[in-house]
Design a protein around this nucleic acid. Structure first.
Lengths: 243, 243
DNA sequence: CGATAGTTTGAACTGACTCAAAACCCGTGG
DNA sequence: CCACGGGTTTTGAGTCAGTTCAAACTATCG
């Protein structure tokens, strides 16, 4: 029941309508449920991992550390997202991954996924779509870091998060609850924590967004979108396109 | 003959040893050979594309434009790389793509690739590996923009290029020919063209690399690697790992 | 109620930018 | 063979967005 309507199912439905076979195969991904405490480290860069996870509940982040101790967060994962999918075919994982909040996740083996390509090709395509979408988010993130100002980055990030959370039924028109600290935001946006604070104050004073006490509240989404140059097309999530 | 030893084959062989069936299926990817002039635009962001390309010869780059006319280059593609693979499942492409030099490329349809999953699962895994590797490069690029200084970015980028070119048999121990202008480098590294020039001068004066007259020459790879914090593991290309 | 994690603010500094102008390089056509 | 012109590289001077360092303030939780 709750499996059939898992966050992943909900997300994939933005791409195709899944058949019963698809749903069955998908359900098989959800054996091996695990739960991890906030701050727990699931994947270590440089180690070999034959499995990935599907996040069912809570927030996680993937990141890379630099020799000088700096950290760059590559992406934030929410319910319905894959964790560590990229490097199951690699000798060693190219990134680390830790739980931001307490999380619930299902472990999936490389073979589970590869086998599904033969059994449920439609589902397989949907999984590839999800992976492509993850990559599109990384790409947009890269553009953020390369060519946008601190304020634009913040605005863009918050709007993306809003759209992603909406797709899996989290948050409402006014905003969403967000467990990220300003240190997280700094490591996501390639800024210092101090500057993150100033940027948030600025956006708040301009009546665009408020991020306080673990809640993000939007006051002028249109203006925020213009500021950020946010065009949600790269999320490719405008209703299911049957084919 | 030259098809059997295409750059793509050479690259995929860093991941698995391909069977004859694999090679046959792969050869089928190489019908529909096209050639495009330098500067030609192959893919436009926002347009629908049912096909991708495999680059056989020359250099290309994928990028995104911002509303204010700024450009961020997402990646440079060389022989053996896929062009536009990420968005064949999307409604609209999330990026644009243009030829840096005159290029030769084979057009592949979404169906060619998806069908191959059933026919040649081993090849399919290899293609997925290549896609994962592309994503890993974007991720490393993101870390570059987020947390490294201009000099480190440049050093890192040149070392990555060196490793990638070596895998497909381009360049030698001393360096490689490179058709990129300082404007390209600026749009790749999230810098201004003026600053790119200063950075290159600095690296040259320190006896690390020289980039002049379309040729990159390395003088101290070890020192450059240390400066950049370059660890090639994310390229996952250390010899074929059979399985 | 003390400790620890996170937020907020100020002041001084700096890496990278912008603007501006030369110099160079190379292919083209007269 | 030389002059022209567009693209590219190089250098200088001044500016600014974002940093670092330092400190105070605010939660929250055992």
């Amino acid at each position: 029941m709750q499996i059939a309507h898992s966050a992943l199912t909900q997300k994939l439905s933005a791409f195709v309508v899944l058949s019963d076979t698809d749903l069955d195969t998908l359900a098989r991904f959800h054996r091996r449920r695990r739960s991890f405490a906030a701050g727990h480290s699931l994947i270590h860069e440089g180690q070999n991992h034959k499995s990935a996870f599907i996040l069912a509940e809570g927030w996680a982040c993937s990141y890379k550390m630099l020799p000088d101790g700096e950290r760059q967060i590559v992406g934030i994962q929410i319910a319905g997202d894959f964790l560590g999918l990229r490097s199951i075919l690699f000798r060693t994982s190219d990134h680390s991954l830790e739980a931001v909040t307490r999380i619930e996740a299902s472990e999936v083996l490389a073979s589970d996924i590869l086998d599904s390509f033969a059994q449920a090709p439609r589902l397989a395509t949907a999984v590839l779509w999800a992976a492509s979408r993850d990559e599109a988010m990384v790409v947009e993130h890269l553009v953020n870091l390369g060519r946008r100002s601190a304020e634009m980055r913040m605005a863009h990030f918050l709007l993306e998060l809003r759209a992603r959370l909406k797709l899996v039924g989290i948050g409402d028109a006014s905003g969403f609850d967000c467990p990220l600290t300003q240190y997280h935001l700094a490591d996501i946006l390639g800024l210092s924590a101090v500057h993150v604070n100033r940027v948030l104050r600025h956006l708040r004073e301009d009546g665009l967004v408020t991020f306080q006490k673990g809640r993000v509240m939007f006051h002028d989404i249109a203006a925020l979108g213009t500021l950020a140059g946010f065009d949600p097309d790269y999320l490719d999530q405008d209703g299911p396109l049957l084919r």
